[in-house]
Simulated assay, not measured.
Amino acid sequence: MKRLVFAFAGMAATGAAMYFVVYLYRWQWQRAVLCGVLLLVVEVLLLGLMLMGRLARIEERVRDTDRRQREAVDRQEDVLARLQRGTRGQETTDRFRWLDEPAERTYVFVPVLMVTGVLLSGIAWLVQRIATRAARPAERHMAGRLAVLSAPDPAAGSDLDDVPPPGGRRTKGGTARLAITGVVGSALLTALIVALADLTQTRAEADDPSEATSVLVRLDVRDQSMTAERRALAARQMWEGCRGSTYVALHKATFGHLGDGLYAGVVRPALTENDRFRLRGCLEDASLERVHLTVVGMDDTEAYQQ
């Protein structure tokens, strides 16, 4: 599903970018702005999808890291418990063997020896407690180091299942394909840049010997109930609005109705090729409510020779 969305968004972005360049070339600014806005929307959508996918992968990695940490702590506690059980098992209970000797033997200073034994036992017990307290951090540290060597829990699964397979070395064929793809992509990008630079380059235009340029346009109306006067007024409004789109100021630009939705305009001086693009783009891009103009033809009128 995600791949389908990415493919659809990629095609939409490509189409919007292509029409954006086409409308810029045709001097149709409103359509170019709409395509640019659509391109930005699609790019933001793609960026959002990429960020959502990256956040999902980060969350998955965080959960996997937490699981591994919990397993490591459990192993450490298990090894620590084993070490403590082994240490307690090695402890001997016969700390005062002289008390188990035969009763036939008698000592002169039995009371003194008993008191001394009690004191020594107390000191030994105190030393043992201190040693036990001091040895616990060392045991925990040792358990943490030995947890790596302990066997994993069969119920939790093996860590080897999550380890990705080792990537093989890139073959010569893969390197060649990558190099060819890079060269072809660079060539296409360079050709696109050169073509756009050639199309958008401003060049000095030669003087047109023609006297004027005639423009034939057709008025398309969605509301058929609109009267002829309203249609003529709308056509003249769009014509007057596009007189300032050319490089040469159009001081003389007559406009009249020919019938059947056709209108003719004559502009003086004659328009250059670049000004024709500008005027055509403005007329076809400009629109009023439910009214649209289409340029049917545009031609020069030669000067009258007496």
Rank of each mutant, 00 (worst) to 15 (best):
A228N: 08
S287N: 04
S214C: 01
A253R: 11
V291S: 03
R243L: 15
V217H: 05
D207C: 04
H251Q: 11
E284G: 00
R236E: 15
G265I: 00
A235F: 06
A204L: 14
T294C: 01
R278Q: 15
H251E: 12
T227H: 08
D299A: 12
W239Q: 08
R218S: 09
A286Y: 07
L199H: 09
V248E: 05
E240P: 10
L250S: 06
M298W: 07
R231V: 01
H292F: 13
T227K: 09
A232P: 02
R243W: 07
A253M: 07
A206Y: 09
G256N: 03
R231T: 03
F255G: 04
V266H: 06
L219N: 09
S287T: 11
A206F: 08
V266F: 00
V296W: 01
L258G: 04
L216K: 07
F277I: 09
L233C: 02
M226A: 13
T200Q: 05
D198S: 14
P269H: 06
A204G: 12
D275R: 06
G256K: 02
D208S: 05
Q201H: 11
A228H: 03
Y247G: 13
A270F: 09
F277M: 09
V267P: 09
L283I: 10
L250T: 03
R222Q: 11
T294D: 06
Q224H: 07
A249H: 13
D285N: 15
S287W: 08
E289T: 15
A235S: 06
A270W: 12
R268M: 10
D260R: 13
R236G: 03
T254D: 14
E273G: 11
